[in-house]
Amino acid sequence: MSRAELTEERASGRPGAERPDGAAAAGAPARSRAVWSLGLFRSELTITFRRWRTLALLAVLAAVPILVGVAVRIETSDGGSIGSGGGEGPAFISQITNNGLFLVFTSLAATLPFFLPMSIGVIAGDSVAGEASAGTLRYLLVAPSGRTRLLLAKFTTVLVFCLAATLTVAVSALITGALLFPTGEVTLLSGTAIPFSEGLLRCLAVAVLVAVSLLGLAALGLFISTLTNSGIAAMAATVGLLITVQIVNTIPQLHAVHPFLFPHYWLSFADVLRDPVYWDDILKNLGVQALYTAVFGSAAWARFTGRDITA
């Protein structure tokens, strides 16, 4: 399919559809507008997930648990131990040899500081700016697309990628852990033993929490994407800002601002592996992500709807 045909399909909101004229769009009932919005979102989702860049990012994320699992297997092949325990972040690695399910938690903790958010930053940063640099943004805004609906479709697509990227890591780790290490009854960090089926449910809960933890960064990246016509500049700025915030979050002298930084509570998902679950940091994390999403999502909407589109 040529670029012109691809752009036509995206502007139409559904494959093979013809764009209705302005009068038809203005008189369309609410149901037709809802169908149109769904078609636009479906088109954006299809375009995003069939790009080689997106597939490459997912492939890298899937490879991380395999590398970690193989490394732990080799390290412990002579009966030795690895890791120091403690139950937070990469310290999950000490539990992998006892139960392969812990490779899921270890892999999420290992990818969360950089690999996962970097992938989100690339997709979010390129969402609007990439269209402008390719010269397709003006065409996509032809009626009846609308700026608000287009921006909402872009943001929803980024959110779906957040979940897809997190599940890619989790599923890859689950398969690798089951192949390389024993599985069965899971001993939580609090010492409580639970069935393997409940452990899988906690894995799913952790994956969803990690995906939600990336919403603030996704909104920030979308806002940056509305500020420039260069997709590369938007991606670089988003990833650069991510690294800067991560550095600030590690400086003890700046502890007063740490609770307000979007990555500060990222590893709070470890509290799901306790009985009972510790909700304090998890709820704080959800609150911070909701705040960033509301602030930068609104800023992105204000900027995009009031901006002169020249590309």
Rank of each mutant, 00 (worst) to 15 (best):
R10A: 08
R10E: 06
A11N: 06
R14K: 14
R19C: 02
A23M: 06
T46W: 12
I47K: 13
F49H: 10
R51Y: 06
W52F: 02
L55P: 03
L57M: 15
L61Y: 13
P65W: 13
G85V: 04
P90W: 12
A91L: 09
F92T: 05
S94E: 01
N98V: 02
S107R: 14
S107L: 04
S107V: 00
F115P: 00
L116W: 08
L116Q: 05
I120F: 12
G121V: 01
G125L: 04
S127T: 03
V128W: 10
A132R: 15
T136F: 11
T136C: 08
P144C: 02
P144Y: 06
R147T: 00
L151E: 04
L151A: 04
F155Q: 06
A165T: 06
V169G: 08
P182F: 11
G184N: 08
E185I: 04
L189F: 05
L189Y: 07
L189N: 05
S190T: 15
A193V: 01
A193Y: 06
I194T: 07
C203G: 10
A207C: 03
V208T: 05
L217C: 05
F223Q: 04
F223D: 05
G231S: 04
A236R: 08
A236L: 11
A237F: 11
A237V: 05
T238F: 14
N249C: 01
T250V: 12
L254C: 05
H264V: 00
Y265V: 01
F269Y: 13
A270T: 09
D271K: 11
V277P: 00
W279C: 01
I282T: 07
K284Y: 11
L291W: 14
T293I: 06
A300W: 02
W301M: 15
D308R: 15
